[in-house]
Design a protein around this nucleic acid. Structure first.
Lengths: 115, 115
DNA sequence: TGCATATATAAGCATATAGTTATATGATAC
DNA sequence: GTATCATATAACTATATGCTTATATATGCA
């Protein structure tokens, strides 16, 4: 009766609640195309560092994103191994591309690059 | 740059916030397969009538559902004309079928039928 | 008309949420 | 070592949310 793609309603509503915040939803859309570090989010959202950090923690707590330290920065990326990634991915595909935010960062010389 | 399917992030997050409640998300999944009236929801969710009514109002306010009076009952259905219906529909497709709730209602003789 | 049923609304309350400021941790540079 | 930069956490506060109870509205029927 239940397909391999169907998700527990409890879990699904928890995920949707987290995505139901403009800042976090935009973060996920941005992460869909590039990993970002905390200070980039701070610059993009013009929001305090603790506020950004707390949003990221919520996304991390239910494992929607992964963190990885690179030098003094911590980069976040989408956790494509999440059991409900198909749902998350399909939602993000309906949203407009946020490449503009990244371009703006580059113009301001704020893009962090660790390669 | 923006495809015909892409949605304003503000609006999308508002929709996701509303769907980020287990009761409302389950309501939408139920409505995907059959219209329901308020008293059916009350029986299914074992929740007070005002609580159900308030959830439905939120869904109605952003036009995710439509209401239609049939005799003394008011039936709710999904608004497939909603501009963001493709997003909503794709979310619901990832969720498990809730037909069992309706069968339970029928067994208890609580299913409302106005045809 | 009057009463029962179905639904909506209002007011109040407890909890959740998203921000703030202050402080702690951890890595790098000197 | 100490200073600096990047990030996380803690404590607090204002607002939002989801329920409750009480009441209002609308339909159907005797």
């Amino acid at each position: 009766m239940k397909t391999t793609e169907s998700i527990d309603l409890q879990k699904a509503s928890q995920i949707l609640k987290l995505l139901g915040d403009k800042t976090r939803l935009t973060m996920m859309k941005l992460l869909e195309s590039h990993d970002c570090c905390v200070c980039e989010f701070v610059a993009i959202f013009k929001m305090s560092q603790p506020a950004i950090s707390q949003h990221l923690r919520k996304l991390r707590d239910i494992e929607l994103v992964k963190e990885e330290r690179r030098g003094q920065w911590i980069f976040y990326s989408i956790n494509q191994e999440h059991g409900d990634y198909p749902l998350i991915s399909s939602i993000l595909h309906h949203l407009p591309d946020q490449g503009g935010s990244i371009s703006d960062l580059e113009e301001q010389g704020l893009r962090v690059c660790c390669e």
